[in-house]
Amino acid sequence: MSVTIRYLTHPQVHVDPATDVRRWSLNPVGAARVAALVARPGALCRTRRVISSDEVKALETARPLADALGASLEIRPLMHENDRSATGFLPPAVFEEVADAFFAAPQHSVRGWETALAAQARIVAEVDVCLAGPQGGDVLLVGHGAVGTLLYCALSGVGIDRAYDQGAGGGGCWFGFDLTDRKPHQRWQPMETLMRDV
């Protein structure tokens, strides 16, 4: 039986400039989207492992899903979002400019951020560690938009490019791949598509 690995980004968050981004929580919209998927997990029904970044917003996505699926929850700190602690919170327009530069010049640190190449190497290595050995069912990885895009690029064999990002909308998107060939099945999809039975 084939094993499907899915990478899911956390949905919408409460933006609080006074709080470390890594400690941001889901906002009511994001929490409602997670609750809807918990109520109808559809395509996730064969998931036996849920593996999450240790950031609050990722855990608030992963924990209720793991509980609903009766799956183990594993917390992996190295699955965190690209390190942006050098700048802390940036106003949305400025953040988008810096994020564009982050993807456009993967080998360079933009305003002290972790480079895209370093973040990509980290997330790929961590996923490889998580998926080493046989799996007892499907696996759900819960993380973040930038490193998720870097993972998608690596698995797809394409260069780092923001064109492969999940796009606007606040997150809550996923892509899947087989454990064996590690090639994405499709581009990013809204998490609501997982509610469909397979």
Rank of each mutant, 00 (worst) to 15 (best):
M1P: 09
S2A: 10
V3S: 06
T4V: 11
I5S: 01
I5V: 14
L8T: 00
H10E: 08
Q12C: 07
V13W: 05
R22N: 11
N27F: 06
P28V: 12
A36T: 13
T47I: 07
V50Y: 00
I51C: 14
V56F: 02
A58M: 04
A62V: 06
D67S: 14
A71C: 07
I75A: 05
R76F: 08
R76I: 14
N82S: 12
D83S: 09
S85C: 09
P92H: 10
A93V: 07
V94I: 13
E97S: 15
D100N: 12
P106V: 08
R111C: 07
L117W: 12
A119F: 06
A121I: 02
D128C: 07
D138R: 02
V139R: 03
L140Q: 00
G143C: 08
V147C: 12
A154P: 13
V158R: 08
G159M: 12
G159V: 05
A163S: 14
Y164T: 03
Y164I: 03
D165N: 02
C173P: 05
F177W: 14
D178T: 10
R182K: 10
H185W: 10
H185L: 14
Q186I: 06
R187K: 13
Q189H: 09
Q189D: 13
E192C: 01
L194F: 10
M195R: 15
D197Q: 07
V198S: 13
V198D: 15
